[in-house]
Computed example of a mutant assay.
Amino acid sequence: MTSAASSNPSLPKRCCPATPPTSCSSALPADARLPRKGPLMEVIIASTIVPFIEGGGTLIVDSLEHALRQCGHSVCTLKIPFHSDYRVMPRQMLGLRMLNVSASGQRLITIRTPSYLIRHPHKVIWFIHHHRTAYDLWDSPYREIPDDPTGHAYRDLLFSADMLAFREARAIYTNSKVVGQRLLRFNGVGSEVLYPPLMNPEAYRGGKHGDYILYVSRIVHHKRQDLAVESMLHTKTPVRLVIAGKSETQSMRDRLHSLIERHRLLDKVVLLDEWISEERKRDLIAGCAGCLYIPQDEDSYGYPTLEAFHAGKPMITASDSGGTLEIIDHGVNGFIARPEPASIAAAMDELYKDPSRAAEMGEHGRQSIDRLGIRWDRVVEKLLQ
């Protein structure tokens, strides 16, 4: 299999950039490029991470740190390794609870569950999701906590710990309406939506209308790259599909390769199963006819959607993809297909055969970002007000 953009730079050999778990910086007012309202502050950002795995949960942390520094604030970022095995979670949660940073900084901003257990008198939560298998995915095949008295005890513990932290917070923001609705449904807690922008949106650029649809994401079951591959059996144009991202499991990697070979799609589907650098990703987006992002019940609109729109490319999503539906307007800045191969294929064909319409939809995507106020100066103002 070959790349759809062979002129792109080669990838680094490691799977992700080496990032220290804790990083602190002094305020750099001379380098500030974002407008700031209010005084300079010392800010702690805390979030849990899965070591050596990068994705939306780490990007939001890095981007927030970058934005705060651009506003001139002093920032200390705590990236805390956390493993989501329910059997070891209670001990890790206790460790987080014992981490008291009350004497440091004027604001603590916590992001990924359950970093908000850390104590601070001025704690603000930017909530991106629950431990979902204990909440909205409890009655789904993804649940890993057993449905027995022991499992219920673990689940009750998670609920109680979350409620403790929510009561302590001076404000709670969510990354989407979907997540805000879950908070209200399961915890009875109100929140305000605060959409996360990209770190460097100006780096994304438009390019020629290529012959491929691009799906950039971690390759994992709920992102449904397999559905994207199956859709290629139903296309009626020469459109190709490029899937770019690292497989999280060998089984998912094997499944995609098997699908492509079994359906004889080697000439229609390019699988770049590797970590994709930011520069190469931008090149791939610039050269595509449009982008595809069809996760199942996503927590937010997903960074791939913003990346496409900043590059002036339309986005195809699915009607059950959750948070993507908050920004994608069918027929205006993209297509909302049924989560079925034939429907997704029809949307791909439309973008391939009508370059002028695709360009117009991509421009509407840029306008959607402005209309929703997805800007870092607004985010910083909200979190520090």
Rank of each mutant, 00 (worst) to 15 (best):
A4H: 03
N8G: 14
K13G: 14
R14H: 10
P17H: 03
T19V: 15
T19S: 07
P21A: 02
R36C: 08
I60M: 09
V61N: 06
D62W: 01
H66G: 07
H66A: 15
C71E: 15
S74N: 04
K79Y: 05
F82R: 02
Q92N: 07
A103C: 12
R107H: 04
T113K: 00
Y116F: 14
L117W: 10
H120F: 08
H129D: 14
H131D: 12
H131A: 13
T133C: 11
R155L: 11
A161L: 14
A171D: 14
V189S: 01
G190Y: 02
G190V: 11
Y215R: 00
V216C: 12
K223I: 08
V229N: 02
T235H: 00
L241K: 02
R253E: 14
D254T: 11
H257C: 10
L259G: 07
L266W: 03
D273M: 06
W275G: 08
L292Q: 08
Y301M: 06
H310C: 15
A311V: 05
G312E: 06
P314K: 03
E326S: 08
I327M: 14
A345K: 00
A345Y: 04
A345H: 01
E350N: 04
Y352C: 07
K353S: 15
D354Y: 06
A358S: 15
S368W: 00
I369G: 07
R371T: 15
R371C: 10
G373Y: 05
L383V: 07
